[in-house]
Design a protein around this nucleic acid. Structure first.
Lengths: 230, 230
DNA sequence: CCAAAAGTGTTAAATTTACACCCATGT
DNA sequence: ACATGGGTGTAAATTTAACACTTTTGG
């Protein structure tokens, strides 16, 4: 390294707002109970210090893995937060990410994790450490905007899903109802859902058609000026 | 301060992608020629180190003021960049912002600035220091998305503008043509433009009606579920 | 046969697109 | 009078919104 600079530096952390949709159709956020000061015993977003020469997203994935055992999920940067007194230990800049998980797969792990990780329903979050409440609010706003313009909602569902599940997902995240017929028409016309040769099982009523998101076709059509848009 | 932590820390900087639209209808980006290593003499985004206990946006505004003399402009956070080797001096996380300026007002200042600040047309940027080319690309993409969904384009025009100026602005930023009649219909129907009792002056043809953006009305209508959208 | 959710089509309204000519002003 | 950009309307196509009943399956 040829040059150096020695200003006093803020600390740099990452924090993750992990959203999960569970089979009972409730949107959940993963929280960690802190064991160290500051804010001991309070609930907070999973996250921690960025190590030297570690990329931001990589740090976020590492912290998620360490604190909750989940990996390989959809992760996007949200925003950096650097208000001077957001951390009582001193000036700390945090880069927040949001992540999407389908709880059909991850439910067990997170629920039984030894490190005090727990899913909390969006509507009843406990009070949070630092400025994490603000971060969660920003994350839900960004999630709402993103889900309307890009096909990321599928990250919250199992690979094979029914149109009703998809509609519920949108209704939950956007907090508004959709008309069943119009919703189905619109989604099917986009032509990025593959109807499978399979139906729902273990239901006490007519079994629904299962679909799968066609990532490849979406990518292709995207290049030729195609928009997802709701 | 009750707690402390002494991990080795990445440095934290801010960088600004300042977009300006000039009267000849070209989209420009403000660049600074570096006087210190690394990347001496190369062009780069205005920016610099975040000081201890300084908020991120505040740091961005301070750097812009110091390096180019402009202040009071529209500024929004873009993204944080933290790839390990993006700065040869050592691990540095930068929080990038993008800003909008109307060059009808700022033209002189920036052009005559002693500190080697210069406007460059978007289509012919020089090669840039660090990963600033990537940052500029991300900024233009974000600008394009934002300008479609929120009325921020007005920040690039003088307070009083004509519909043709507005249309040109959209055409330049989005790099596609709009139909004159349809564009005017759409914008006027939004009902957030105030027609003034004034016309363009010093033109060699029929003088155009001047309009002003009605921020107040926009804010109101936004609360009652109203979207700008193109 | 009952309960529960799946699946399906039409119509009216609103929005979007395409398109061409006259107007006002300064030289 | 002419060059330059300002300003305007209509019709067709597409998209959206509203709305209710029949089907399938398991219990």
């Amino acid at each position: 390294m040829t040059y150096s600079y020695d200003y006093p530096r803020p600390a740099v952390t990452v924090d993750c707002v992990v959203f999960g949709l569970d089979p009972t159709n409730s949107l959940q956020v993963l929280l960690i109970q802190r064991r160290l000061p500051p804010f001991v015993e309070q609930w907070a977003l999973p996250g921690g210090f960025v190590q030297l020469d570690e990329a931001l997203e990589q740090a976020a994935r590492r912290e998620l893995q360490e604190e909750s055992g989940i990996s390989g999920l959809f992760l996007e940067q949200l925003k950096a937060y650097g208000q001077p007194h957001r951390d009582p230990r001193g000036h700390t800049v945090t880069v927040a990410f949001y992540a999407l998980v389908n709880l059909w797969s991850y439910q067990i792990k997170a629920a039984t994790d030894a490190k005090q990780a727990r899913w909390w329903p969006m509507e009843q979050l406990p009070s949070l450490a630092f400025d994490h409440e603000k971060i969660v609010q920003d994350a839900i706003a960004t999630l709402q905007a993103s889900i309307c313009h890009r096909p990321i909602g599928f990250e919250l569902l199992p690979k094979k899903f029914t149109l009703t599940q998809l509609q519920r997902l949108y209704e939950i995240v956007l907090a508004r109802p959709f008309d069943k017929r119009n919703f189905r028409k619109k989604l099917l016309k986009l032509n990025i859902l593959i109807p499978l040769d399979e139906k729902e099982t273990n239901v006490t009523h007519r079994a629904a058609q299962l679909y799968q998101f066609d990532q490849a076709k979406y990518m292709e059509r995207q290049k030729t000026g195609f928009n997802f848009d709701l």
